[in-house]
């Protein structure tokens, strides 16, 4: 008996609605975030992640309201990402009822921010989100580069090195998304995940590419992820979180039932 591997449904929220796109474009509406979160809680989700993808900062208050409503009726850990730029943004999300914040672009712009944030709030609530894409190299050794701004801006930073650095700076957890796989339903980038999980001693959440339940299981069995994150397989009713857990348990993976 041991620590359970976590299943984390992810809600991309734009102006108060859950949406889902393929490779960050071609957006579909997937419902009211409070109702969707309640449904996943009932299905046995181990945590819920909200990513605020609202472009305009005018609409940022919307996600705070969503988190407040969800936190008053759903009693599992909640993570919120998107638009976290300063300690006051973290404070605001934690006050609204979030347990962790996920930080991407700001970490790249100013890595010291992760150190400050984890010293101030504790590393248990600081998740660094890493969007990585495989790049061609002359020597054919696999290499991944990280991107910011929802996958639009390349940085030239190596994803594995960045993961190690962020864990050292105080990230309590890493959320690793393969941009090559995101929305494709081809499964996680196992090569990327297993290299990162081997390189860091903090928990890693695998994300990007889940199209069926076996993909979730492979993220744990071959990618060695501590948690697996998925969106569309749950949003559009293909599978419930409960079905995912039963499948993973059959593969010998420890889950919370």
């Amino acid at each position: 008996m041991a620590l359970a591997k976590r299943i984390i449904p992810c809600l991309d929220v734009d102006r108060g609605r859950v949406v889902k796109g393929v490779k960050f474009v071609d957006i579909k509406d997937a419902g009211n975030p409070v109702e969707v979160a309640r449904r996943y809680d009932e299905q046995g989700a181990d945590e819920i992640t909200f990513l605020d993808i609202t472009a305009s900062s005018d609409d940022r208050e919307t996600i705070v309201n969503v988190v407040e409503q969800v936190a008053s009726e759903v009693f599992i850990p909640l993570t919120v990402g998107g638009g976290i730029r300063a300690l006051k943004d973290i404070h605001r999300m934690l006050n609204a009822g979030a347990d962790k914040v996920s930080i991407n672009t700001t970490a790249v712009k100013n890595p010291e921010f992760i150190r400050q944030a984890s010293q101030h709030f504790g590393n248990q609530c600081i998740v660094v989100a890493i969007d990585a894409k495989q790049v061609n190299t002359e020597d054919r050794i696999p290499k991944w580069e990280i991107f910011t701004h929802g996958g639009r801006n390349p940085t030239g930073i190596d994803a594995i090195e960045w993961s190690v650095k962020m864990a050292q700076y105080g990230a309590g957890e890493l959320l690793v998304t393969s941009m090559d796989r995101d929305g494709t339903k081809d499964g996680f980038d196992i090569d990327l995940m297993s290299r990162i999980t081997a390189a860091v001693s903090v928990p890693v959440i695998a994300s990007g590419g889940v199209g069926n339940l076996d993909h979730l299981a492979q993220g744990v069995l071959k990618g060695h992820a501590d948690a697996v994150l998925a969106a569309s397989i749950f949003h559009f009713g293909e599978y419930t979180v409960g079905e995912a857990k039963r499948y993973m348990a059959k593969q010998g993976i420890e889950v919370r039932t």
Partner: peptide, 28 residues
């Protein structure tokens, strides 16, 4: 135990750390 790594021979992947820190998640 926390510093231990293991080699997953079946899947032939790189050595993995067995117990991540923080201890995060649902345990019995």
């Amino acid at each position: 135990h926390h510093a231990n790594t293991y080699l997953d021979k079946k899947n032939n992947t790189t050595p993995q750390i067995t117990h991540k820190i923080p201890h995060m998640g649902w345990n019995e």
